[in-house]
Structure formats: C-alpha cells, structure tokens
Amino acid sequence: MGWFRLRAARWRARTRPAPVRDASSVDDRELHDRVSELLVRELGGADAATRAPAPVSPARIASWMSDNQFSYFVDNDGDLGGLWRGRLFYFFLFGEQSEILQVRGQWHRELAIERLEEVLDLCNEWNAERIWPKAYARVRDNGRVHVVSEVATDLEHGATDAQLSQLLFCGLSTGSMLFDALDERYPDPAGTAP
C-alpha cells in the first residue's frame, strides 16, 4: 500500500497546476507562450513547414521525377508515365480542379482468363490486409487478365513538396510490392491456363 501512495503523491505533484496569477496580469504574449509550451510538452514539437501547400500539377510531378532522376514520358493524351522496375506507372490528376492525384501502375505481365477467379481472390486479400495500393484486375478485349495498382489522394488544399514526394513514393513503392507478390505467386509462364 505504501508504494501506491508514493506513486499517487508523485502523480499529484506532476499534474498539479501551476499557481494562477490574476488573469489581468497575464498578457496575450505570455499566455500564447504558455499554451505553446504545453502543446509541445504534451504533443511533441513539429517542424515548421518549409513551404505552404500548393496545387499539384503535371509540372510539379515532372519536376519531382527529374529531381529523383526518374525517366518519364508524356503520352499522346498529355499523361505522365514511366517505367519502374519494368512496370508501367502513370500519374493522373482528376477532379474539377485536378485536385485528386492518382498513381496507377500495371503489372508487366498478363494472365490467362482461366486464372481470373484466383487473381480476383488475390486482389481481395491484398485489399483486405493493406491500405495501399488498391489492387484490381481487368479483362482486356483480347481476353487476357491484367492487374492494376492504384493510390489516390484528394489534394484539394494542395501539398507541400515533401507531402507530394511522400505520396508519389508511396504509389510507386506499394505498387511495386503488389507486383512483387504477383511475380512470386505466378512465375512464368503465367499466361497459360492452369
């Protein structure tokens, strides 16, 4: 029982509020500093933003690719794309204000239509166990199954360069993880019926 009382006394001493002075004697600056100190102590500090969020544009995405020494292209529709580890990724902007960033990748191989059910099961398992990327399968006009990864983020209020970089790397790295899992599950020749 003595240990508990000692702990309770220490807790009361730590959580006891500081003596309060007359409110009229505390100026706004001091009050602001006290609240800031309390927030830093309770929540931890945060680095000041180096730049305010700005709208995402194809030019910013292309600049990010160049800064990271990634090769990219612009297709006939004006969409940015590139190959990462032999896999095709596109970077789309959707929405009325082009505020939704989507990083969409496609696996570099196709599967036989007879494997559709097992690929759909794999995509459902992936989506149930992970946040990113969304995984889905499409059947092309030629009857072949093609698997897609997708990471989409609403950036209505823009993004800093650091935030944009994190989102783009997230789309590429998690898409690559999905495609690595597919490579492991379906060694060549995956295009033949089971």
Rank of each mutant, 00 (worst) to 15 (best):
M1H: 08
F4T: 14
F4P: 00
F4I: 14
L6T: 14
R7D: 04
R12M: 01
R12V: 00
R14D: 07
T15S: 07
A18W: 09
R21G: 07
A23T: 06
A23I: 14
S25L: 15
D28A: 15
D28Y: 11
R29N: 08
E30Y: 06
L31K: 07
D33F: 14
R34L: 11
E37T: 12
L39E: 13
L39G: 05
L39F: 12
V40R: 13
V40W: 05
R41I: 06
E42L: 15
G45N: 08
A46G: 04
T50L: 09
T50N: 05
P53C: 04
A54W: 05
V56Q: 01
P58H: 02
A59D: 09
A62Y: 03
W64V: 01
W64T: 01
M65R: 05
S66C: 05
S66D: 07
N68I: 01
F70I: 08
N76W: 08
G78N: 08
L80C: 05
G82L: 09
W84D: 10
G86W: 07
L88H: 14
Y90P: 01
Y90R: 14
G95A: 09
G95H: 13
G95C: 11
E96Y: 02
Q97P: 00
S98E: 11
E99M: 03
E99T: 03
I100L: 07
I100Y: 06
L101I: 03
V103I: 14
V103Q: 01
V103M: 01
V103F: 02
Q106L: 05
Q106Y: 00
A112D: 15
I113R: 11
I113L: 06
L116A: 12
E117W: 00
L120I: 13
D121W: 07
C123K: 12
N124W: 02
N124Q: 09
E125T: 12
E129S: 15
I131T: 11
I131N: 03
A135P: 02
A135R: 03
A137H: 06
R140Q: 12
D141F: 04
N142Y: 01
G143R: 14
G143C: 10
R144E: 13
E150T: 05
E150H: 01
A152H: 00
L155I: 05
E156I: 03
G158S: 06
A162H: 03
S165K: 11
L168G: 02
L168M: 06
C170H: 10
C170V: 10
L172V: 15
T174P: 00
M177N: 13
F179S: 08
D180E: 09
E184M: 10
D188T: 09
P189G: 01
G191K: 07
G191P: 00
T192P: 01
